[in-house]
Write a protein that binds this DNA or RNA. Sequence first.
RNA 1: GGCUCCAUAGUUCAACGGAUAGAACGGGGGUUUCCUAAACUUCAAAUCUGGGUUCGAUUCCCGGUGGAGCCA
Length: 591
Amino acid sequence: MFNVCQSGRPMTFPQLLQQRVAAALTGLGHTLPEGFTAAVDPAADPRFGDYQTNAAMVLAKALKTNPRALATELAGAIDITGLSATPTVAGPGFINFAITAEALQTRLDSLLADEKLGIAPTENPRTIVIDFSAPNVAKQMHVGHIRSTIIGDCLARIARFVGHRVITDNHIGDWGTQFGMVLYGWKRDLNEAALLSDPIRELLRIYKAVNAESKAQEDELKAGDRPDTPVRDACRAELVKLQAGDPENLAIWRRCVDLSLSGLAVVYNKLDIAFDHYLGESFYNDRLPSLVAELEASGLARESNGALCIFMDDSPDAAPFIIRKRDGGYGYATTDLATVEHRLRVWQATDVWYVVGAPQAYHFQQLFDATRRWGLQGRFQHIAFGSILGPDGAMMKTRSGESVGLMEVLEEAEERALAVVEEKNPDLTGDEKAEIARAVGIGAVKYTELSQHRLTDYKFSWDRMLALQGNTAPYLQYSYVRTRSIFRKLDGTEPALAGPYLITEDQERWLALTLSRFAEVVPAVLEDFRPNLLATYLFTLAQAFHSFFEACPVLRAEGQVRATRLALCEATSRVLKTGLGLMGIRTTERM
RNA sequence: GGCUCCAUAGUUCAACGGAUAGAACGGGGGUUUCCUAAACUUCAAAUCUGGGUUCGAUUCCCGGUGGAGCCA
């Protein structure tokens, strides 16, 4: 009945409708303008119908005819057999479609038979390296890292789900200038006992102490109260020794990295996030001198004010990409070039996605420009996101230490969730409560990030980050729990799923339609890297389910009505679990 | 100084150039002998400002105002 795609799955309702609208236009003898597609979208308001097209209005403009008349003519010519009720024309020339109950019933059946829930694998599979999280060694992961980590993980899961080959790479900051300070502080006043009991905290203490001292001296220098900055100079000296391969400094550095990685593992474990690779900055050290030499020899880079620079192709007056500093050192620019080279040549990536904050936009513009002119081919994406602001509305500064630790947020999230479980469901076992608290607490934090537009800046707030009411993960998780609860109550002898189905009630209809839209939404997330589309969709689905649940008794119904409602519950259950899973959020059977 | 991003109910967020701008929280009303009330239902409440393009602008363009960021 429905046209199918390559994988044998039925096309989505908008795809089918679009096909038929296009066929009708051709049948009417209209020559379509270049680039015209008969786009079909969900209707703005359910009162108008389920889907709408404004093709007649767009086309009427190009053909200089009356849109309303064209819409009427077109509506009459569309073959909607097995798909929609007779299309209606409304407003200036919208054509509205109402999917028939039969089509929804058939769709429900195919959804339940498909482990991918209607999502066709991409026809153009790519090899995508996703660069996200990227914390710095010897520093604490704070809330500022949360967006990259959670958004990156979600995009990786979705890209895999739709059939891309995905390589996740945590580009750890393990070779930055902060090591000068850490080394200096380590040698001067490391507390071994403290290092053993809480390594990250001790490293952070050293770093902060040295940083504060160095900064104070710099301020005094500026104010003319002091002729030199001995701490800063000593730190630089330590850094130079490290980079020159000094065995003692290398050993300390190695230990710092190892300690930090084990600290990070705890956080990632709590977050349920794993990486295929942890190739930090240091991995590329050996490549940097030859890379710079190549770029210089090829003429792409040239000297300017003692530094070796790549100037932007299209705007040569703009700030250049500095690949070797005046003092001979290498910065992020050089490391990033070596990194992208590795990803393209060794991993054979076709795409590289960088999930990094919006302030880095210019850096990536430079990086992509330089990479292309170097001759490396690939699709590069800076997937930017907005900043988490402090209470004053300005960005939180790591160095001043005012930002909140990520682990602290996750632990508080679990505690708050646990308190709610204790209150709502005291009879559960301790293990169950802990499992629920984890799913709900961590889920709430992830959902907060994923449910809003990634470019939005927001002020950090505990209550916002850890909210458990309203448009939050637990609302969705609770819908899932309700579906599972119904199936626990079946006696075990009756088949849970048995068509043919019969949809009659409004709430059933709306739920079935919403379920079918999962296949429309998931691929759309990757069009503009917008996880909030999936979050919004799942929230709509949960709302549809709760309304259905209140209005349509399942277990007290009989025959075909009961079978249909069970099928709707099962489909909701699977879509919610899968959809939440794509966001890295767990579900539990009870809560 | 140059460039980039942002501005929507009291608050926090949505809205491929489409119809009467949609939610959540908070506020007001209602729903529990019935599959988990972490739920449902209902009411009030918003596009910073001035132009432009368009049949149609929260969305695109230009100028203000206000906020954030990047670069030197």
